[in-house]
């Protein structure tokens, strides 16, 4: 369709990707880094794929890019949830700034009981 619109969408996507990777470097612990991964980088890549759709219009490449978006959403959310849960059960400490932890009791009782 329109090259200009495509370039604009891809640029917005790259800006969000830069912010997400900056968060990956700067934030203090695993859980906060996952926040930047699931939000900034996923939305940035979705924006890039929308840019591809703008370039090609509704032909085979554009539709494929459009259907990549829900795929990316579901895989990134489920992956982030699994990683956060795995890290907590593995025993990765929360950052020093953490205010409140209501999940501790459940994990402690489950580990003492011997069931996961």
């Amino acid at each position: 369709m329109s090259d200009l619109l495509g370039v604009i969408f891809i640029s917005i996507g790259i800006i969000f990707n830069i912010l997400g990777c900056l968060g990956l470097i700067r934030l203090p612990d695993v859980y906060n880094r996952l926040q930047s991964s699931t939000k900034c980088v996923t939305l940035g890549t979705c924006s890039i794929l929308l840019g591809v759709l703008m370039f090609f219009g509704f032909n085979s490449i554009g539709v494929k890019a459009l259907f990549c978006i829900p795929l990316l959403f579901f895989t990134s959310t489920v992956g982030a949830h699994a990683l956060a849960r795995g890290a907590y059960w593995f025993g990765v400490k929360l950052a020093d700034k953490t205010k409140i932890d209501e999940y501790k009791d459940l994990v402690k009782s489950a580990k003492e009981g011997g069931t996961a």
């Binding site: 700067r26 906060n32 953490t98």
Partner: peptide, 19 residues
């Protein structure tokens, strides 16, 4: 996204994480 990006860009990072 804008919220998380805003927190990342601050120098002192105004985050108070918790579960």
């Amino acid at each position: 996204n804008l919220d998380v990006a805003y927190r990342i860009l601050q120098v002192n990072m105004p985050i108070e994480p918790g579960i």
